[in-house]
Simulated scan of single mutants.
Amino acid sequence: MRQQRFIELGEGYSDIYELCELITTNADRLERTFLFKAATKDGKPSISLAASFSPAGEGGFYPIYICREGIPSKEGNVSKRQLVFEEAAASVGSKPVPVELKHSSEFPETKLFFQYVTGVLRLNHLLPPLD
């Protein structure tokens, strides 16, 4: 049985570089990259970067690595962290899929937020269904 789960990295530069390293060193397993856009309750937009990978071996574990909401977003202005991520994705032939989401602060628990994101991705056929 396939198990899909988010693995949360941090929000800083080193975390983005770690995500980029996962993308480039596991290019053969990379399924898709994502650019999640959300706005806080006070209207401040932020971006999350994520990448999903196919299972390694026969384990059936389908990881989705995410750097959650650590990048402030300004109209017409792309941050250095977003550029680094997009360049890493492009280097292995992936273009991040933009997805509009609710901000995680609208959920009482992070686990509920990740369930919501999983549902949105499945409804849009961006994650495979569970076996």
Rank of each mutant, 00 (worst) to 15 (best):
K102R: 12
I23M: 14
K95L: 08
R81I: 08
S46M: 05
A27R: 14
L83A: 08
R81Y: 14
A56T: 07
Q82S: 10
Q82G: 00
N124E: 09
L35R: 14
M1H: 10
P55Q: 11
V78N: 04
P96N: 14
F113L: 01
K111W: 00
K95D: 07
S14F: 08
S91Y: 10
A88K: 05
F53S: 02
F113N: 00
A90P: 00
L35A: 06
D42R: 12
G57C: 04
P129W: 05
A27M: 01
K44V: 06
V84R: 08
E86K: 13
G59T: 13
T118P: 02
G70N: 05
D28L: 05
E31T: 02
T118G: 03
H103I: 07
Y13E: 11
E87Q: 12
L19W: 05
S79H: 04
K111M: 02
L126V: 12
S14R: 12
L83F: 09
H103P: 01
G12V: 01
L123M: 11
E106V: 01
T118D: 11
C20T: 08
I7M: 09
F113T: 01
S73G: 02
C67F: 04
Y62V: 03
E8W: 03
S79T: 07
P128A: 07
R81L: 14
D42C: 04
N26W: 11
I7R: 08
Y62M: 12
D131F: 13
I66P: 04
A51M: 06
P108N: 10
E75D: 15
L121P: 00
A88L: 12
N124L: 04
I71T: 09
L9T: 03
L22M: 13
D131M: 06
G12I: 01
F85V: 02
G57H: 12
E58V: 10
L49E: 05
S48I: 00
L19Q: 05
S54L: 15
G76N: 04
L130P: 00
I66Q: 03
V117T: 14
E18W: 06
G57V: 10
L22P: 03
R81M: 14
N77M: 10
K74H: 07
